[in-house]
């Protein structure tokens, strides 16, 4: 890239120049302001956690709601098992999966028994909580988890970066490899952007392929 003169701001621009100045007060980060309920949760492993302190803060999170009973109608946990396979390596250190039951009958002991039917790598927890707490959480994440005790397992998966506060969503029945790729999007960058000329991301040279993007591969 040829370095150009720093462009002058147009007349009337409302950009506030911070060059050479201390940061203005308070520059609070833009935020949603929606705190997580720091509810206690009980895992299929017998462990007990606080939602925010132990499970969200500083982690890449994949979270969905389910019920054991609902798996016959819609096998969301089987889908999540496929996603977990593609997250292997990152699971348990950087990325964590939380499957939160909305059925009060899904006790930790029952969850343990249920989890044994699946390949559950380190970093994937089946969780339950007091009914009012699960309700508080599912209200906050997704009002539509229609029926807090019901037979329906929602399709929605929330994924995000708990440290940064950036969240997206996908369907649990999405392509599992692609779901794992999405989770990588929200990971905190390791170090600053490399100095020097910007790198070309695309479009790539034309070919006969019909991939889902035009990026350099």
């Amino acid at each position: 890239m040829i370095e150009q003169d720093k462009p002058r701001l147009p007349e009337g621009s409302r950009r506030i120049d911070t060059n050479g100045k201390a940061e203005l007060p308070p520059p609070a980060q833009a935020r949603g302001g929606n705190a997580f309920p720091n509810i206690p949760l009980f895992a299929h492993t017998g462990e007990r956690f606080r939602l925010y302190e132990d499970l969200i803060k500083d982690r890449i999170v994949v979270l969905h709601f389910f019920t054991i009973r609902g798996q016959k109608a819609f096998p969301s946990v089987r889908h999540m098992e496929n996603i977990a396979k593609h997250l292997k390596g990152r699971l348990g250190s950087e990325v964590f999966i939380y499957s939160v039951s909305q059925d009060i009958r899904d006790t930790p002991a029952r969850l343990k028994h249920f989890a044994a039917r699946y390949e559950v790598p380190k970093g994937w927890y089946f969780l339950t909580a007091l009914p009012e707490d699960v309700e508080a959480l599912s209200d906050r994440l997704q009002r539509s988890a229609c029926n807090h005790r019901g037979s329906h397992s929602p399709r929605m998966v929330h994924y995000g970066n708990g440290g940064v506060g950036m969240w997206g969503a996908f369907g649990v029945d999405s392509d599992p490899a692609f779901a794992a790729e999405r989770v990588s999007w929200v990971a905190t960058a390791e170090g600053p952007v490399p100095a020097g000329a910007p790198r070309r991301a695309g479009p790539r040279r034309l070919g006969n392929d019909f991939a889902h993007h035009n990026r350099e591969t």
């Binding site: 929606n34 969200i56 708990g162």
Partner: peptide, 19 residues
């Protein structure tokens, strides 16, 4: 928000998430 920063309605943690 009250600091004049843009708010998006999702569960972004606050400085003190247990607020």
């Amino acid at each position: 928000d009250q600091n004049g920063q843009v708010v998006w309605d999702f569960f972004t943690p606050t400085a003190d998430p247990t607020d």
